[in-house]
Amino acid sequence: MSAYPGGVLVLLPPSETKAAGGDGAPLDLDALSHPELNETRRELVDALSTLAGDVPRSLEVLGISERQVNEVERNAELWTSPTTPALERYTGVLYDALDIGSLEPAQRKQADARLAVASALFGLARGTDSIPAYRLSGGGSLPGLGTLRSVWRPVLEPVLAAADDLVVDLRSGAYAALAKVPGAVEVRVLSEDSSGKRKVVSHHNKSHKGRLARALACAVEEPATVEDVVDVASEAGLRVEREADRKLCVVVSA
């Protein structure tokens, strides 16, 4: 049986910013997808919430300023704060373009099945996984545990390797480093000027990846091949080219 019932798995990067609040019950790891990740999730949630008891140390470890002390307060309440579905928790440029709230019920059901967020705290968060707001970056580390890459790779890679569907990897570098995905379709965004010269798009690539994720989530016919991904993107008004067997680029005007 497929590990991802949608038939295609689109791996999204998370965002540093999270929507506040929620109307769900406090975090229940047993209610999340991929229970094989729960031991690591519990270890990280405990470590992060304990760290929050030392505000100066938390600010240092998280790489944030005193003006963001509310992020530490969120971490202190990981086990007790309200939750909300993962696709509604993350905010920012990519998630604005994904615009999950505008989907029709049938499209939202597809999005929940096809999209998953790479999370420094939860490993993978499926669309229906209810999670609290938190602050933890994929490239960071936690006292006593080491780098998140060393924590997640041994347990997360087997889960992703078990996905026998088409995997479209939209993760950013720090989150891609948490686990390799053999055979995944990699996507990058390039800008092209009037002379045809191209360069890699950095921050604004998130918007175009969000549009691609939305197109794949909403596609009526299940994308099953790389060519299907290109076709779905083209129908959504994106210019996508195949650079290699498993590498695509979204080309935008400079």
Rank of each mutant, 00 (worst) to 15 (best):
M1T: 10
S2W: 12
P5C: 10
V8T: 12
L9A: 14
V10T: 15
V10Q: 05
L12A: 07
P13F: 05
A19I: 08
G22N: 04
A25Y: 07
D30G: 12
A31N: 07
L32Q: 07
P35L: 05
P35G: 04
E39R: 11
L48M: 03
S49H: 09
S49Y: 01
S49W: 01
L51V: 02
G53P: 06
L59G: 07
L59A: 13
E60S: 15
E60K: 14
L62F: 08
G63D: 11
G63S: 05
I64F: 03
E66M: 09
E73D: 14
R74D: 09
A76D: 06
E77S: 14
S81E: 09
Y90T: 01
Y90L: 01
Y90M: 00
T91P: 00
T91D: 04
A97S: 08
L98K: 04
L103E: 03
R108Y: 07
Q110T: 13
A111R: 10
A111V: 10
A113H: 13
R114H: 09
L115W: 09
A116G: 13
V117K: 08
S119E: 03
F122Y: 10
G123Q: 00
L124W: 01
G127T: 06
G127F: 02
T128Y: 07
I131N: 03
G138L: 02
S141Y: 12
S141G: 14
L142C: 00
P143A: 03
P143D: 05
P143N: 03
G144L: 01
L145K: 10
T147F: 07
S150F: 06
V151K: 01
R153S: 09
R153W: 03
V155H: 15
L156N: 00
L156H: 00
P158W: 09
V159Y: 09
A161D: 13
A162S: 15
A163Y: 10
V167M: 02
S172T: 11
G173E: 15
A176P: 08
L178I: 02
L178Y: 01
K180P: 08
V181A: 02
V181S: 04
G183L: 04
G183P: 05
V185W: 07
V185D: 11
D193V: 04
S194Y: 09
S194L: 13
K199H: 11
K199T: 12
K209S: 08
A213F: 05
A213C: 06
V220G: 11
V220R: 13
E221K: 14
E221L: 09
E222R: 15
A224T: 14
V226P: 05
S234F: 09
A236S: 15
G237Q: 04
G237H: 02
V240W: 06
E243D: 14
E243V: 15
R246L: 14
R246I: 06
V250F: 08
V252W: 13
